[in-house]
């Protein structure tokens, strides 16, 4: 396909209209691949904790292997869902101000949720 409006430089850079090239797409894939095993780990951890007392739960959640798997799941998910929701917002919201507001809200939400979960796991790990 010929693209007369694109300069030779822009074609060599290959960054496209969003100026970030395929990095959004690629990061979505990398986080997806990671999330396959991390989600399985997460589900197994939840099953392990079902029906336990509070003392039992915090002991398991605070143990190094479980805590590390939970942290990996939390970081990867926070980033993956940030990218994913960005995509949804850009697809449906065409008003510039609304879009800006929602994109910012998405960033705040993902940071807040990710940090809250991380803090809780770290607190459990270092107090048990």
């Amino acid at each position: 396909m010929s693209a007369p409006h694109r300069t030779p430089l822009s074609q060599v850079r290959g960054l496209g209209a969003a100026r970030s090239g395929t990095s959004h797409f690629w990061q979505q894939r990398v986080t997806s691949v990671a999330l396959i095993s991390l989600s399985i780990a997460f589900v197994i951890i939840v099953l392990l904790l079902l029906g336990r007392t509070h003392a039992g739960v915090i002991q398991i959640l605070g143990s190094p292997i479980v805590a590390i798997l939970m942290l990996l799941f939390i970081f990867t998910t926070a980033y993956h869902m940030w990218l994913g929701m960005q995509e949804i917002i850009i697809d449906y919201i065409h008003d510039d101000w609304m879009k800006l507001m929602l994109l910012m809200t998405n960033t705040f939400f993902c940071c807040a949720v990710g940090l809250a979960c991380t803090f809780a796991i770290l607190k459990l790990s270092f107090t048990v």
Binding site: H54, V57, I58, L61, M70, I74, T77, A78, M81, G84, M85, I88, V113, A116, C117, F119, A120, I121, K123, L124
Partner: peptide, 19 residues
């Protein structure tokens, strides 16, 4: 995907309560 997005609130609530 959007459901899981908001589901993270539940995960955060659960972990914070445990802490």
């Amino acid at each position: 995907g959007a459901t899981l997005y908001f589901g993270m609130i539940v995960l955060a609530w659960w972990l914070i309560s445990a802490a």
